[in-house]
Nucleic acid binder design. Structure first.
Lengths: 234, 234
DNA sequence: GGAGACTACTTGTCTAGACAAGATTCGGCA
DNA sequence: TGCCGAATCTTGTCTAGACAAGTAGTCTCC
């Protein structure tokens, strides 16, 4: 496709004019019929352009009413969460992991509640420190629901990250995460080789597959050695 | 639309079977023609279902080859960045802001480089602390390119947040951000009423509109009072 | 004046067919 | 053997028309 596809032309035009402020947030935009007449394309083509702009959050559409420029006060960006191993090797560092703990435990009340299992039920618990070259960059404290990944403890975590394994055995279905700054626990500080009061980026992630909780992980990163970054284009 | 739309049926079927592991990551999935035969719908309908799954990152499509189940090792989530004012009020708190600085300055080398202006050029600089009820939650240190928002210093920032204003005058076009844990500067600690070594979540955001840098902001949040959170569904 | 029918407009969706373009396979020819 | 082209698969896209469904205004009838 050397020439730009018609739907892309329409989409690009609308995007440019939106960016130029031709339709301020909330303003009614041209109807599909008007765009059909303006560009000399079929309605399906215009519809596709508008539907994609809607998915991207640039316009709001209401059946029977029309298409409106979206209020740009919220901007959504895509934050890609990659497997740590891939991320480290992609930056040219060597990744290795040290397993400090990998065993079956009986669930504490807090863990049982978050994993959706009975109290005192058996759960898997791993504590792994990940290194980029020789520098510890993440302390991964993870509980896994044995019902979802019975073979979890048999995995060689120095070769395969838990995230990688869990995504293979249980297709990821839904997850919640929170990101905050905090201080490490005494053990985490020791394992990461940092001070007890050094700031850390702490990500807590809870993953649910087919409405069954699979795993809860606390990922602690030394603040000076780890950075989440991303970018977005509306 | 009481009955489920055909394209949604096809999409839902593929999503369910993908989640069930019917096509492991990388495996070739049914072609459009096969799905047309299976569901008795037109190719456009199947095409739309597959295209939307592609946008959602669940499948990869290659012209001339076929459709493949996406390797789920990377998972993209949508992180919505809302205007702080909206976010605070949405949670039932009262938002107010205190302006500690709002003036024209000549750009330091670092700021000039990031804003794409000449050294010593005039830039706008604001330093604002945002409160939820009476608790300081964000210290916003921002530089603005005067060429993009000449009226910036005339805004009453106790009523309109800089983000809100800038999104109005210069449609957001592209932005980069980084999120890290760190310690506040002495001034930030004082303004936020926290200790010099208390961990903070620091977001640095650089916004570019129509390839012209608009603004660079350093947003410092006390670790105990602020949390980024989100969720995703593949 | 009020209620309901009608009309005109919007978006939401589906269809059947068409052509373009990338990739692979395989046959035929030098 | 090696290379070229045709056949055949795939996805990418567009078209013209159709019907459904939501909204708003108007018009008529009671």
């Amino acid at each position: 496709m050397v020439a730009i596809a018609p739907f892309a032309r329409v989409k690009h035009f609308l995007k440019r004019e939106l960016g130029r402020g031709r339709w301020p947030p909330g303003r009614l935009m041209p109807s599909e019929a008007q765009l059909v007449a303006r560009f000399g394309v079929s309605r399906m083509t215009v519809n596709r352009a508008l539907r994609e702009l809607q998915i991207e959050g640039l316009v709001e559409r209401r059946q029977g009413i029309g298409t409106f420029a979206a209020p740009l006060h919220r901007v959504s960006s895509t934050l890609t969460i990659r497997d740590l191993h891939d991320e480290i090797t992609a930056r040219g560092h060597a990744h290795h992991a040290v397993v400090h703990l990998a065993r079956r435990e009986s669930a504490s009340a807090a863990v049982a509640e978050r994993l959706g299992v009975a109290r005192e039920a058996a759960v898997f618990h791993t504590l792994i420190v990940h290194f980029a070259d020789a520098v510890p960059v993440q302390c991964e404290d993870r509980f896994v629901n044995p019902a979802c990944a019975p073979g979890y403890l048999d995995v060689d975590f120095t070769r395969i990250t838990p995230t990688h394994y869990l995504l293979d055995v249980a297709p990821l279905w839904e997850a919640q995460y929170s990101i905050e700054a905090g201080v490490p626990t005494a053990r985490e500080a020791r394992l990461l080789g940092i001070g007890r009061r050094d700031p850390c980026l702490i990500v807590v992630r809870r993953t649910v597959s087919r409405s069954v909780p699979i795993t809860v992980a606390r990922l602690v990163h030394p603040g000076t050695r780890y950075l989440l970054h991303g970018e977005f284009k509306p």
